[in-house]
Amino acid sequence: MGRYVARRLLQMIPVFIGTTLLIFLMVYALPGDPVRGLFGDKAGSPQVIASLRHEYGLDQPILVQYFNYMKDMILHADFGTQIASGRPVTDVLGDAFPVTLRLASLAFAIEVVLGITLGVVAGLRAGRATDNVVLVITLLFISVPVFVLGFILKLVFAEQLHWLEPNVNDSTNYGQLLMPAIVLAAASLAYVTRLTRTSIAENVRADYIRTAIAKGLPRRRVVGVHLMRNSLIPVITYLGTDLGALMGGAVVTEGLFNIKGVGGTIYESIVRREGTTVVGLVTILVLVYLVANLLVDLLYAVLDPRIRYA
């Protein structure tokens, strides 16, 4: 187990270098320039621009810039400075990340609880009316785009029924975060439901379930212990990657509900051509994603003893 974790951590190094380099190159391939962006419509004097470019190291070749950036990051945990505000990227992320974290956790909770419950209910009644109703609902959730769903919910629950606030004014208020969390969770919830349903419907016919019934176990124990343990393994895989994706923020949902999260911050940085900010933010998100994936893989071994890591 220890060796496996060590190997996985080592594997993260090339992944980490690859992603950061790719993002760095892609941001610099875009037309535009963060220093020019500072001046807006006015044209700055060439001397000032040149000196600013020198100050931020933008006059050096791209690979040298990348090397310097990585050196600072690894040696001083310095993820760069946001040019527009002069603040360190870690500070910028420090503001945005808790907001995204709250939104993501709420969405994740909705997705896990509702998705698995609906999946189990549908799976146990595979082929019958309940199953078909759940199937249609999930199909709707998957096919309706996020912004459409967001606007519909806003229109119904905020504008007409006045149950919920249309926008998030206070990102620590979970009541206000509820609607965006539902919108964010909708598609994943549908996938979780379908995965659970398929897995349950398949395993419910397994021989060991027949054995469990023949042992005279009560139904809730047959389903809760024997069926669920086996059926949740594929669902956990999906949930793990989805948690990583949720942490990366949601540009559309955050925009719709006026949430100052990671997604919005990255979007702004891209618009302003701030390579360092984008790379800094994404690098941290890549790390979060990799760790989430590792945890899921380790969770496998806990759920399924046939999987052993060496």
């Binding site: 021989d207 060991y208 027949r210 054995t211 469990a212 024997h226 086996n230 759920l303 046939r306």
Partner: peptide, 11 residues
Amino acid sequence: FQDALSSLNPV
């Protein structure tokens, strides 16, 4: 049951 491998819960 006949096939003990599939009749016992693997996890």
